[in-house]
């Protein structure tokens, strides 16, 4: 039987700070993503781009278009945050399929950290775009009586983001691990294929919801 999915294994201690498995895995994924990006963007060409450049441009342009369609505005200022969110989530979710690895997003801390970043970013961007007073007045819309509920909904939305991601990824990996331990080597392959799709879908959902929250905060779309 596998260990509890709700525990976060500590890999080593850095003074008083416990460095856990998702943090180490994230560092590894960050190294891969940053090095890969740096290598892939070394020789970008306007004329006759190579296959790698074509894929990069396709990914970046698709992300920008999807985010722009969701936020109904030019997505370029939001692309680093939301694009990175999608890429990291996709890579992190799929990393759980690599034998011996565990997806960082299968830990509640990672999901909550990402949701917290989205929550803080939406507040900061909303204040910067609309001004502090106008942004705060938005919480009393349509009536001040709804102010507590609106504030609470900000928190619950972030919470639901994190729980949704964590639950899906964790449960998928947990089921695969159980099936693998019970049935044998190749039996969980269909489940892994499903987990492949699920990881991408969860990355997409998380990113789109984050775009919706930030779009609502900056006022480009109606606040949900």
């Amino acid at each position: 039987m596998t260990e509890s999915p709700l525990t976060t294994p500590v890999v080593f201690l850095l003074g008083p700070v416990p460095v856990t498995l998702p943090v180490v895995a994230t560092w590894g994924l960050m190294a891969v993503m940053v090095l890969g990006s740096a290598l892939a963007t070394r020789r970008l060409r306007v004329e006759r781009p190579g296959p790698v450049q074509t894929v990069l441009e396709l990914v970046v342009e698709t992300l920008r278009r999807q985010i722009g369609e969701t936020m109904q505005t030019d997505a370029t200022p939001f692309l680093p945050l939301l694009g990175t969110l999608f890429l990291y989530l996709a890579v992190a979710n799929l990393s759980g399929l690599v034998p011996g690895m565990k997806a960082p997003t299968a830990f509640l801390e990672t999901a909550m950290a990402l949701a917290l970043v989205v929550l803080l970013a939406s507040q900061a961007l909303g204040i910067r775009r609309r001004g502090l007073w106008a942004y705060l007045k938005g919480f009393a819309h349509p009536t001040p009586l709804l102010l507590p509920l609106n504030l609470l909904s900000e928190l619950t939305r972030a919470f639901s983001l994190s729980i949704r991601l964590f639950g899906n990824v964790m449960s998928g990996e947990f089921v695969i691990a159980i099936v693998l331990s019970l049935a044998g080597l190749f039996v969980p392959v269909p489940l892994m294929a499903l987990e492949l799709l699920l990881g991408l879908v969860q990355a997409y959902i998380f990113t789109i919801l984050a775009a919706v929250f930030i779009g609502g905060a900056v006022g480009t779309i109606e606040k949900g």
Binding site: T8, P18, W27, S37, A40, T41, T84, A113, L114
Partner: peptide, 23 residues
């Protein structure tokens, strides 16, 4: 784990900055 949560948030923000720079 609060440290993990904080480190993951910082990691993500650093990743945002790096990908913005290199991608």
């Amino acid at each position: 784990d609060g440290w993990t949560l904080l480190l993951q948030a910082v990691n993500f923000l650093i990743l945002v900055w790096l990908l913005r720079r290199f991608l």
